[in-house]
C-alpha cells in the first residue's frame, strides 16, 4: 500500500523554493491548508499547551495568577517530593510491578504467537484468536468487575474451589500480599492476545523460502523455530522491549487505580496513583507536575541506556 509513484502534476506543481513560489502554492492549494487548521489547532491546544504548562513544576502555581504570573520556586517541589516519607514505598512498588510486567506480562504474547504459529489447523487457530483478542476490547472497569466477582468471598469461583479442596476462603482483593499477582495476571488476561498480533505479523513477514530451504536440509520443526522463527521475531521483540523500558514508571494507572484500596496501599500504591490523589483530589498542582516531570526524565534516561545496551548486544535499536 505504498504511495503511487506517479508524477504529481496538479494542484500547484511548483518546484520553486523561493518564498513567492511557496506563497503561490499555498494560495492555489488553500483548501488543503484550511482543512489542516482544526486538526493542528487541536494538537496545539490540547497537546502542546499542557506540555508547556509543565513549567508549573518550577512555580508556586496559583490558580488565580495562572502560569504566567505565578512565583518561580526552582526545585522546591522536587525537594519536597524527594523528602516525602513514603517515597521509598512508592518507588519500590512502582519498580517491582514494572519489573514483574517485563518478566511475566511481556513474554506472554510472544509465547502465544509462537504457539499459534505452530498450529496446523487454521480453523482452530482462528477460534483461539477470536477468543484471546476479545478481552482487549473490554474496559478496565469491566475486567475489574470480572476479577471482583471471581475472587468474591461469598460467591466467587476461586473461593468455591479453595473451599471444595478443604481450604478456607481468602479475601484476595483486600490482602496486600496478593495485589501484585492480581495486577499481573489480570494484565496478561486482558492484553496477551491483542499484543500477540504484532509478533504474529513479524512471523508472517519471514520469507517462506527460508523454511523451504531448511526443510530441504532436513531441519526439524524445533530447529526451524530456533534458527528461523525466533531470529525473525527478534527485531520486533527488541523494539517493544525498549519501548516498555522507556515506560518503566508507567504501569497503567487505569488498571491499578481500580484495584487499589486502603488495605493494599502498602504493596500497590505507585507514583501515578499517588499523583492522582494529591493532584486531582488534593489540588497540589505544582508538586504533582514535578512528579510527572521526574517520571518523564527517568523514562527518557532508561530508554537511552537500554537502547545503547541493545545496540551493543543485538544490534537492534530504536534510533
Amino acid at each position: 500500500m505504498s504511495a503511487p509513484n506517479i508524477v504529481q502534476t496538479k494542484p500547484g506543481d511548483s518546484s520553486k523554493t523561493d518564498f513567492a513560489g511557496l506563497l503561490r502554492f499555498i494560495v492555489r492549494n488553500r483548501a488543503l491548508y484550511i482543512m489542516l487548521i482544526p486538526g493542528m489547532l487541536y494538537f496545539l491546544v490540547f497537546k502542546y499547551f499542557p506540555l508547556a504548562g509543565s513549567v508549573i513544576a518550577f512555580q508556586d502555581y496559583n490558580i488565580f495568577k495562572g502560569f504566567l504570573d505565578s512565583e518561580w520556586v526552582g526545585f522546591k517541589w522536587f525537594e519536597q517530593f524527594f523528602s516525602y516519607p513514603n517515597l521509598l514505598r512508592l518507588l519500590k512498588n512502582t519498580v517491582i510491578i514494572s519489573f514483574y510486567q517485563i518478566i511475566f506480562t511481556f513474554p506472554a504474547p510472544i509465547l502465544l504467537a509462537i504457539l499459534l504459529n505452530e498450529l496446523r489447523m487454521q480453523s482452530f487457530k482462528r477460534v483461539v484468536q477470536t477468543i484471546v483478542y476479545l478481552p482487549h476490547f473490554l474496559s478496565w472497569t469491566i475486567v475489574f468487575g470480572f476479577v471482583y466477582t471471581l475472587l468474591s468471598v461469598q460467591t466467587g469461583f476461586v473461593n468455591h474451589a479453595i473451599e471444595a479442596l478443604g481450604g478456607s476462603s481468602v479475601n484476595f482483593l483486600q490482602k496486600a500480599e496478593y495485589f501484585r499477582t492480581i495486577i499481573i495476571s489480570s494484565g496478561i488476561w486482558k492484553e496477551m492476545g491483542w499484543s500477540a498480533i504484532v509478533f504474529l505479523a513479524a512471523i508472517s513477514g519471514i520469507s517462506p523460502s527460508l523454511y523451504e530451504a531448511a526443510k530441504m536440509d532436513g531441519a526439524s520443526r524445533f530447529k526451524q523455530f530456533l534458527h528461523i522463527t525466533l531470529p525473525g521475531m527478534t527485531p520486533a521483540i527488541m523494539i517493544l522491549l525498549l519501548l516498555k523500558i522507556g515506560h518503566i514508571l508507567d504501569l497503567g494507572f487505569e488498571q491499578i487505580y481500580l484495584f487499589l484500596n486502603p488495605m493494599t496501599l502498602s504493596t500497590g500504591d505507585i507514583l501515578d496513583t499517588y499523583a492522582y490523589r494529591i493532584g486531582i483530589l488534593g489540588g497540589k498542582y505544582s508538586l504533582t507536575t514535578a512528579i510527572g516531570l521526574f517520571k518523564s526524565v527517568v523514562g527518557l534516561l532508561m530508554l537511552v541506556i537500554a537502547n545503547r545496551a541493545s545496540k551493543a548486544t543485538t544490534g537492534e535499536g530504536l534510533y
Binding site: 491546544v45 490540547f46 497537546k47 499547551f49 499542557p50 506540555l51 508547556a52 504548562g53 509543565s54 508549573i56 490558580i63 499523583a275 492522582y276 493532584g279 486531582i280 498542582y285 504533582t288 507536575t289 510527572g292 516531570l293 518523564s296
Partner: peptide, 10 residues
Amino acid sequence: TAPMIPSYLL
C-alpha cells in the same frame, strides 16, 4: 504526551 495536571488545568 500531555501531562495530567496541566491538561486538567486547561
